[in-house]
Nucleic acid binder design. Structure first.
Lengths: 348, 348
DNA sequence: GACTACATTTGGATCGTTCCAAACCAGGCC
DNA sequence: GGCCTGGTTTGGAACGATCCAAATGTAGTC
C-alpha cells in the first residue's frame, strides 16, 4: 500500500510495479499494449500509472531495444521560408510516426554542417535528412555520419559523390524542367529576346535552371545574347541593383526567367525605378512560389515546388528506408509546377 | 591484438577498452577529457577511438548521469518566417551549448500542441521553449509537461495562468511600447489626426498595440475619433480593401499606425489607388520589419522585433534556468525598435 | 623496510526499460 | 494424483556509459 511518493526522483516502472504488486516486466507489457496481460491486471496497472503520474522514458527503452525514435533534420538555411516550410512538412510526418525531429542548421557552412551532423549522430537518430550546405562534399558527410545511419539528401547533390556513397536516397527538384517550362511559356506568349536573370553562376540549382532555359531557347531556335545572362546574389536587394545590366547591351530583352522569386521581386523593383512596368512593358517569371508571389503587383508567374509536400515526401522516403534498410537507394526528381499569373504578359 | 571488428554491432567503450588493454572506466574518463588520466594512456585510447570509429552514445550517458542534452522547441506555426527565424536563433544557442533541438509544430491547434508536448516530454528534454497556439491554456500545458521540466513561454501568455504555474519564465515582445513609439514619432513629425489601422480587434497583440497607440495620443493631448480605429484581417488584401474606411468620416486622419507590415503595405496600395501618395500625402508605420519593408516604395517605417535575436535570448534564458532551477522565474518584455524610413513623412 | 602521499586505474553497481527462458496457475483429462 | 495445455507472470541479465569506493603503483621520507 505504501506507494513510494515521487520524492524528487522520477517515477519509473519499478515504482508502478511496487505500487500495484506486479513485476516490472508486466508493467512494461502494459505500457506497450501487449495482448499477453490479463484484463484486470492491465486495468490495475493503468490506474497506478495515472495515479503516480508516470512518464515513459523513451531514451531508456531505445537503449535496451536498440531502436531510435528520432529523425535528424539538418538544413542549410532554416530562416529561409522555403526550408522552413520543408521542415514543417518533415515534422508533420515524423510526428505522425510517433517520432521526434532533431533540428540542426548549418547556415550554409560545410564546416558547421559537419559539426552539426557529428552532434546529431551522437544522439542516435534513426535516420538523417540533409539539405546540404553549398560546397558540402560526400566524403566529409560520410565521415561525420558513418555508414550505419540512413541518410536522405534533399535539394542538392554532394560534391564528389562516388559509387560507394550510392546507398543514400535523394530527393531533388526538377530545376531544369521548371526553367524550361517557364521559358517555353514566355516564348509561347510571343517573346523572343528572353534573359536569364540572377543566382550564383556556380551553384548547382542555378546551373540546372540556366540549362533548362538554354534548352528551351535552343528548342525554339532562339539565340541567347551573352549580356542576357546576368549573375547576382539571390536576394531582392542585389537583384534590384543589377536590373540595369539587362539593358546595358543591344538588343535589350523583353522578358526574363529569374533564378527565384526573391530575385524576380527585386527585379520588378529595379524595373519600376527605370519606369519599365513589369507585367506590361516587361515579362518575368520566378521560382519557388513564395507567399508573396501571389500578392505582388503584378502577381508573379512562378514555379511551385511545394516545399511542405516535399518535406512530407522526404520524411516518408526515409521512414520507408528505415523499414527496409537493404532496399535499393532511390533517387527522385520531383516535378515543379508552373503557376501562371500576371507578370508573364505578352510583349508590349 | 584481436580488436573486435565492428561486426554489425556498434562500437562501445567496452570494445575500445578491450582494444587497448584498459578498463571501461578509463575510456570513459578519456571521453570526458578528465585530467585524471595519464598522458600516454590518453593517447593510446584516443588512437583506438579513431581506429575503431567510435561514436559516443549520448542517450546512454544521459540515462546514467540523469542529465539531458536536448531542448524541446514547440512552435505554433513554423512555416511563418517570423517563427522560422526565431527557431534558427534558438538552435544557434542550443547548438553552441552542445545540445540539440527537438522540434515540434502545433499548427495553432491547442490539441496538437498538447500531443506534441506529451511526445516531447517522453524524450526527456532538459527544458522546453513553447510559443503557444492561440487559445492554449495553462492547465493543459502543465498536465502535458509536468512540473519537473523547466518551460519558457514565448510571444504569448497562456489563458488562465495562475500563481501555481508562476515558475515558468516568459519572453514577450513589447507591443505596447512599440506602438507608443511609432505613434509618438508620427506626432513629433507634426501629425495630429492619427489612425490605428488593421488587425483582429480581440487578438492579444492587437489589443496591446492599440493600447500603446491610445496612450501616446492621450499623452500628447490628442483626441481619437471612433472611425480612426479600423479593424481588418492582418493581410495585405484586406487592408487594401479597408483603406477607404479611414476617409469615411470627418475629419480624416493624416497618418496611421498599422497593426503590422502586411497591413501597412496593403494600406499603401489602397491609398495609391485613391491617388493619395503614401510617404507624401499620408504617413504610416508598420510592425515586424519584414524583408519587404525596406524595399517597398516608399520604404516603410516600422518596428523591428528581431526574431532571431529573440530566439537566442529565449534559449539563453532557458539554459540559465537549467543551471539554476530554483531561481526566481523571470518575465522579460523585449523592446522592439523603431526603424525610421520614408513612409513616416511630416504632414503634407 | 615501513610509512605516507600522490597519481592513476579499476571492477562492480547503477540509470530505466526490455528481452528471455523459465515458472506459475487453473482446468481438463486420463 | 500425474500430466498436459494455454494463458499469465516473473526474476535476472542485458543495452552503453558513468559513478564510486577501493586497489594499484611509484616515489619520497624517516
Amino acid at each position: 500500500m505504501d506507494s513510494t511518493p515521487p520524492l524528487g526522483r522520477k517515477v519509473t516502472v519499478r515504482d508502478i510495479a511496487a505500487g500495484c504488486g506486479v513485476s516490472r516486466a508486466t508493467v512494461s507489457l502494459v505500457l506497450r499494449g501487449s495482448p499477453l496481460v490479463n484484463k484486470d491486471t492491465r486495468a490495475r496497472v493503468e490506474a497506478e500509472l495515472r495515479k503516480q503520474g508516470y512518464v515513459y522514458n523513451r531514451a531508456a527503452a531505445n537503449l535496451r531495444r536498440r531502436t531510435s525514435s528520432s529523425i535528424a533534420l539538418v538544413i542549410n538555411e532554416l530562416a529561409n521560408p522555403f526550408f522552413a516550410e520543408f521542415a514543417a512538412g518533415v515534422d508533420e510526418i515524423v510526428g505522425e510516426a510517433g517520432m521526434v525531429t532533431l533540428l540542426g542548421s548549418s547556415s550554409e557552412s560545410p564546416r558547421r554542417e559537419q559539426a552539426v551532423l557529428g552532434s546529431m549522430i551522437e544522439h542516435g537518430p534513426g535516420g538523417i535528412i540533409l539539405s546540404p550546405a553549398e560546397g558540402s562534399d560526400a566524403r566529409h558527410v560520410l565521415a561525420a555520419v558513418g555508414a550505419r545511419t540512413p541518410l536522405l539528401l534533399f535539394n542538392r547533390e554532394l560534391a564528389g559523390e562516388q559509387p560507394e556513397y550510392a546507398h543514400w536516397d535523394t530527393l531533388l527538384l526538377d530545376n531544369q524542367q521548371g526553367a524550361r517550362e517557364a521559358t517555353a511559356h514566355l516564348i509561347a506568349q510571343g517573346h523572343q529576346r528572353i534573359a536569364f536573370f540572377g543566382g550564383h553562376r556556380d551553384s548547382s540549382s542555378c546551373r540546372q535552371r540556366r540549362a533548362g532555359y538554354r534548352e528551351a531557347m535552343q528548342a525554339a531556335g532562339l539565340p541567347v545574347a551573352p549580356h542576357w545572362e546576368v549573375e547576382c546574389a539571390p536576394t531582392r536587394l542585389d537583384a534590384a541593383r543589377c536590373a540595369e545590366a539587362l539593358f546595358a547591351g543591344d538588343p535589350a530583352p523583353t522578358a526574363a526567367v529569374c533564378y527565384n522569386d526573391a530575385v524576380a521581386l527585386g527585379l520588378m523593383h529595379g524595373l519600376t525605378q527605370r519606369d519599365v512596368a513589369p507585367g506590361r512593358d516587361f515579362a518575368l517569371t520566378g521560382f519557388d512560389d513564395i507567399a508573396e508571389a501571389a500578392l505582388a503587383a503584378p502577381s508573379l508567374t512562378t514555379l511551385a515546388a511545394a516545399p511542405r509536400a516535399r518535406g512530407r515526401q522526404a520524411a516518408q522516403m526515409l521512414l520507408e528506408r528505415l523499414r527496409d534498410p537493404t532496399a535499393q537507394a532511390r533517387r527522385i526528381v520531383a516535378p515543379v509546377q508552373l503557376v501562371i499569373r500576371a507578370s508573364s504578359c505578352p510583349p508590349a
